[in-house]
């Protein structure tokens, strides 16, 4: 599967990674190489094969409905690049 430049731009946008125009072409080539190599999976007949849903054979464990965390805004905010009045701050979002 060859990955074209528009596809690279589209997925870079979806992944929120700025990609200089100069990197689009080489990235398309790299991804095409990798996806081409991955194509060999099409050799295998997978009809009637169930996709793997969990690596371990156990049911989902559950927690009790008890408040045991939170109440520590200081630790929560300690790594924040920008914070104000206990809020995380981002450039204004226009809806």
């Amino acid at each position: 599967m060859s990955v074209d430049k528009d596809t690279v731009r589209r997925i870079a946008r979806l992944a929120r990674i700025a990609l200089d125009e100069a990197r689009v072409e080489p990235m398309a080539a790299e991804l095409s190489g990798i996806m081409g190599w991955v194509e060999q999976l099409n050799e295998v007949d997978v009809t009637n094969v169930a996709p793997m849903t969990s690596v371990v054979a156990q049911s989902l464990k559950m927690r009790d409905d008890v408040v045991s965390e939170g109440g520590n805004a200081e630790a929560l905010m300690a790594n924040a690049p920008e914070g104000e009045d206990r809020f995380f701050v981002v450039p204004k979002v226009v809806e």
Binding site: E84, D85, F87, V89, V90, K92, V94
Partner: peptide
Amino acid sequence: SLHDQHPDHSYV
């Protein structure tokens, strides 16, 4: 997200 607290910031 609070958009009306600051002219160029949103608060989360």
